[in-house]
Simulated assay, not measured.
Amino acid sequence: MNSIKNHRILILGWPLRPPQDWLSHYPEVSAVRIYREDLPRSQKRLKDLSFHMPRALQLADSVTPSHWYGDWKEHIEEYDTVILIDEVRGRDVFDYILSHNPSCNLCAFYDSPVRPGTPKEPSRYTDMPVHFYTCDRQIAEKYHATFAPYFYIFSPCDFDTYDVLSQGECQRDVFFIGEEKGDRRTRIEEITKVLDQAGLTHELRLVPQNRHRSLFHRHKPAGTGYMPYSVVQERVRTSRAILELISDGQTGLTQRSFEALFLRKKLITTSPEIKSYDFYHPQNVFILGERSLEELPDFLHSPFHSIAPEIVQQYTLAGWLQHFLRA
C-alpha cells in the first residue's frame, strides 16, 4: 500500500463543519474549503458575480474567481496531489492549480449526482490533465471515471476506539433515523409490524424535511428534531442492527453502511448494490425486497460475521486516498 506519509495532499471542498479533530492524525493532509467563507453580504455578491463573469470582462480583481479562493492558493505549489471533492463548477480552479503547480496530480471526486449540461460534467475537461473519480457506479460508467468508494468520515485512526464502541450493551434490536421522503413511511410501518410481532425492540425515527416541525412517527422517543451525530452514533453503538432506506436514484455507500461496518452492526437495507462491496456478507446484511420480512427475526438473532481488518481499513481516509496517489 502506498504510504500517504510520502506525499503532501490537499483536499479542496471538505465539509469542515463541524471540524473533524481526527484530521490532526494526518499531518500530510490539508483539507479546506475552496472559497473564503463568512464574507459580508456585499463581498458575497461580488464573489457570486465572479462565477458568472466572462473571462474577457474580468478586468477587476474582485470579479476574478481566484480572488475569492482561500489561503490554500498561497501554498498550492507545496502539494503533489490535489483532490477536489464535488466542487467542480468550471475551469477556473483547475486552471489556477495547473498554472501554479503544473506537475501536480490533480483529481476531482464526485459524491453526488452529475446533471447533464452543467459545468460539473467531466466530459467538459477532457483537454485538461485532470483525473476523475466517483463513488457512484453510474457516474463512473457514463463518464469513464474511476470508481472509488467513499470513506467513513467519522472513522478515527485508532481502531481500538471501535473495539470499545462496538461492545456497548444492546438496548434495542433495530435503529433508524432519516427524513420523511419517498415511501419511507410505508416501509417503516411494514418493518415495525414484523418487529412487533416477533417481540423485537426498535427505535425508528422519521424526521420531517421541514426542520422546524417535530417528529411525528408514533414510535418516537421524547424529544424532537434532528439528533446530533454523537447521539446517533451512541444509538447505533447500543443497537443490534441499523435500518437503511435508500432514496430514489441514490447509489454508493451511505453513512449507515459505514456505521454498520465500523461498529460491527447488522444492516437492513433497500440497496441491492451493497452486494458488490468486499465487506458484504449475507449474515450481516439483509436486503429488503430480496428476502422476506418474515426472515428478519432469524437474521437479527444470528451471530455477526467478522470482517477482516484489512477490508475495513480500505474505508478510512488513508484507504480512500490510495485510489488517488501515484508512486
Score class of each variant (00 low, 15 high):
residue 52 H to L: 06
residue 9 I to Q: 01
residue 100 H to A: 06
residue 16 L to Q: 11
residue 211 R to S: 14
residue 139 I to D: 02
residue 167 Q to W: 01
residue 101 N to G: 04
residue 130 V to A: 10
residue 73 K to N: 01
residue 190 E to G: 06
residue 53 M to P: 05
residue 310 E to V: 03
residue 316 T to F: 05
residue 208 P to M: 00
residue 197 Q to Y: 10
residue 309 P to Q: 11
residue 199 G to A: 07
residue 19 P to I: 12
residue 288 L to T: 00
residue 175 F to E: 02
residue 199 G to H: 01
residue 43 Q to P: 00
residue 54 P to F: 05
residue 238 T to G: 08
residue 68 W to C: 08
residue 242 I to N: 15
residue 9 I to R: 03
residue 315 Y to D: 05
residue 252 G to P: 13
residue 47 K to P: 00
residue 132 F to P: 06
residue 135 C to R: 11
residue 271 S to M: 08
residue 267 L to P: 03
residue 214 S to D: 09
residue 148 A to W: 14
residue 70 G to K: 01
residue 58 Q to W: 05
residue 240 R to W: 04
residue 315 Y to E: 05
residue 315 Y to A: 10
residue 259 E to D: 12
residue 179 E to A: 05
residue 44 K to E: 15
residue 61 D to R: 14
residue 190 E to M: 10
residue 255 Q to H: 10
residue 4 I to G: 03
residue 155 S to W: 11
residue 102 P to L: 05
residue 146 T to H: 11
residue 133 Y to L: 09
residue 319 G to N: 06
residue 213 R to Q: 14
residue 195 L to F: 07
residue 197 Q to I: 06
residue 221 P to Q: 03
residue 52 H to V: 01
residue 47 K to E: 13
residue 165 L to E: 06
residue 121 E to K: 09
residue 180 E to P: 00
residue 59 L to C: 06
residue 318 A to W: 01
residue 74 E to N: 15
residue 183 D to H: 12
residue 84 L to Q: 04
residue 263 L to E: 15
residue 325 L to N: 05
residue 91 R to Y: 13
